[in-house]
Nucleic acid binder design. Sequence first.
DNA 1: AAGTAATAGAACCAAATCAGTCCTATTTAT
DNA 2: ATAAATAGGACTGATTTGGTTCTATTACTT
Lengths: 160, 160
Amino acid sequence: MMRMSKLTDYGIVLLIHFVESDSKRPTYSARQLAGLTHLPLPMVSKILKLLVREGLLVSHRGANGGYRLARQPENITVGETIKAIEGSIALTECINAPGNCRVEAMCPVRHNWQRINWRINETVAKALQGITLSDMVHPIAEGFVSVSDLQPGGSPGLPC
Amino acid sequence: MMRMSKLTDYGIVLLIHFVESDSKRPTYSARQLAGLTHLPLPMVSKILKLLVREGLLVSHRGANGGYRLARQPENITVGETIKAIEGSIALTECINAPGNCRVEAMCPVRHNWQRINWRINETVAKALQGITLSDMVHPIAEGFVSVSDLQPGGSPGLPC
DNA sequence: AAGTAATAGAACCAAATCAGTCCTATTTAT
DNA sequence: ATAAATAGGACTGATTTGGTTCTATTACTT
């Protein structure tokens, strides 16, 4: 039901490299990052462009150009990153685009369904916006996810 | 970033009809529901079969057969419904299937990324499992979603 | 016992989406 | 001037999803 595109997944991996570097606010070219991550260059390039457009990275063109974080890693959240690459978050079609819901007017739940969607989006957004790039690299404190909190039967498979 | 398939969306609409009926624990045939919802019969049929398989509906075959809720509407949640139709919830590939993550071993964030995924899944699951079919039909109390809670700039478009 | 109305299950096809590539233009340091 | 880099958009192949069709099975009715 939920999914994040590979672009986004890669995007986060890319951003993490800026945080993990020894230097404080490093500049990486797309080529360098492709080397570091073993992802194809055109892919990396595409993602970086998106992240610039959405203000997470700043770019510098020309020879010796490259990308660097637009802000401190503590101020860039996973939520932002997802939004930057994938755009808005929505669960059902009719929330975004009026008229393409086949059930349309007679849909008995449309009104409540909207509110529920909002609620869910809000919940997820909040969770995601509480996690910064720093959280991702500096290992997250134990207890950040307590195992006892997980749904007993319903959690996905074991870690890979 | 998040999306729910149309199957699931339809599935919820279908379930709602069982709750809205005048009779207490009504039986509907796939054909009847297709009529009520204006969704194509094969589609409806497919969804109902899934919901039976996952224990949300019970079916009765043969002439005068049909489907009815397996439990009281207060005990069937939106979360269950989504899980029934779409299976597990996961944000990144490598959570579910080891080995198909291209970044594999060198992925610098894999470990934390897992935990973050768990956290997100947990959060969403909790939110979804707090919403029952009854909540969907009996209009939800004001304040269930407070507008002030919504993300200021980031929320999706206006309702349709 | 026959006929009919229903679900069960699986295979199938078309359309939309996504992952990934490529090409051209523009910028800038040397 | 040249080379190294980003910007932007168009393109293609593969995967996923939405939707259909077909056959088998079950059970009520006459």
